[in-house]
Amino acid sequence: MKWLFSHRLPVAEMTIDIRSEAFNPWTEIQSYQSAQLPAGKYGATASFIGTMRDFNEGDGVQAMTLEHYPGMTENYLTKICNEAMQRWDIIDCLIIHRVGKVEPNDPIVLTVVWSAHRGAAFDACRYLMEELKSRAPFWKKESLASGERWVEKNSPG
């Protein structure tokens, strides 16, 4: 029976990180993968990076302020990572999300999923992003030349 365990993947892990400072998603992926992932066990890394646009609803947007519900936001992101781990055979997932003031071209969100094969990583990464966009308590307020406005709904995808 020993061979069964020699190929078992480690228990799935996750990291949720709400940041009030700018981050570089590329170096985050690299450093997290080096520090946290079991070398040789993952064959697929799927990532999504959401970046601030300088336009929305036909208007130029100069900056945005992101707000969250401390505690509930982290709980909700943990919940969807747990759901993804139940549903797909994944090894690890990482979500970093900005709060505070962001400017065009700043990364807002990074979602990364590692798995042995590509299907689970792609599907779980998409799942995490769609769940985050539809239910995780974050809110955006845009700064326009004409003043400020709350974003009332997310784009359909």
Binding site: M72, L132, F138, N154
Partner: peptide, 24 residues
């Protein structure tokens, strides 16, 4: 935790109200 408007509250609860979410 998300709840419906008809949910009863208990002593010590924190009730939060917010608009549709727009993260990501």
């Amino acid at each position: 935790e998300y709840v419906d408007l008809s949910q009863a509250v208990k002593d010590g609860d924190e009730v939060a109200f917010f608009p549709p979410v727009t993260g990501g």
